[in-house]
């Protein structure tokens, strides 16, 4: 049931995704602030399919040369492509403190035992500025294979970006910067090079009192 209703291709499903800041309060307490978060969902057949977005509407927001979004989509499989619109929660006081930890955690599951590679490209005006590549091995748990990228440190570029964004006095200014800031995550089977999931992330600042929000879309070519 999760196919078409959550971030799931034929062979890999995203269970959880978060980018966060941990601030130690005292030796026993750590304050965790979630900038963005996709929680566990358990869709059923009665849930509606995700809305679709024509991938051509966003090609220019991501790398367009060799290995870019267009080429990746042409290679397929088409049901592995998603767009996530995040409303990031920036309602937090940031100070420079070396005891702070900026991290990203994500979890995936599969019926297959494999080794996955996750490439995360941060893009400005559609051009890649930094890339992180991570390799993850499966753990067999409760009848399926689980992949955990646990507390991966956020890179210096991203930490500086968040700090600069926070210094802007108005939300509309932050959104204007975020309009040209995107992230492309591609999860691949390391050995077969098959695309398992391709997730295009775009951002606005949350105005909600309930923290980070998101919408997930299927990407397709009409």
């Amino acid at each position: 049931p999760w196919q078409g209703r959550s971030i799931a291709g034929c062979k890999l499903r995203m269970l959880e995704f978060s980018a966060f800041l941990e601030q130690p309060q005292d030796p026993e307490t750590v304050n965790k602030h979630l900038f963005v978060h996709i929680g566990q969902s358990n869709p059923t057949y009665s849930d509606p399919y995700l809305e679709a977005v024509d991938i051509r509407q966003i090609y220019d927001k991501f790398p367009e040369k060799k290995g870019g979004l267009k080429e990746l989509f042409e290679k397929g499989p088409p049901n592995a492509f998603f767009l996530v619109k995040f409303w990031a929660d920036l309602s937090i006081n940031l100070q420079d403190d070396s005891s702070f930890f900026y991290g990203v955690s994500s979890q995936y599951e599969s019926a297959e035992n494999m080794i996955i590679t996750s490439s995360t490209k941060v893009c400005s005006f559609g051009k890649q500025v930094v890339e992180k590549v991570e390799t993850e091995y499966a753990r067999f748990e409760s009848g399926r294979y689980v992949f955990r990228i646990h507390r991966s440190p956020l890179c210096e570029y991203m930490i500086n970006f968040i700090h600069k964004l926070k210094h802007l006095p108005e939300k509309y200014m932050m959104n204007s910067v975020l309009e040209n800031f995107t992230i492309l995550q591609v999860v691949t089977n390391r050995d077969t090079l098959e695309t398992l999931l391709c997730i295009a992330y775009v951002f606005e600042v949350s105005t909600s009192e309930h923290g980070a929000q998101h919408h997930i879309y299927r990407l397709l070519k009409d």
């Binding site: 809305e51 409303w87 309009e179 040209n180 606005e204 105005t207 929000q213 919408h215 879309y217």
Partner: peptide, 23 residues
Amino acid sequence: NPAGHVPMRARQLPASFWQEPRT
């Protein structure tokens, strides 16, 4: 926006793209 960049608002995107969920 620099020349050639089409604003997101000018693109064909679902209405929900501009509506922050209130959950």
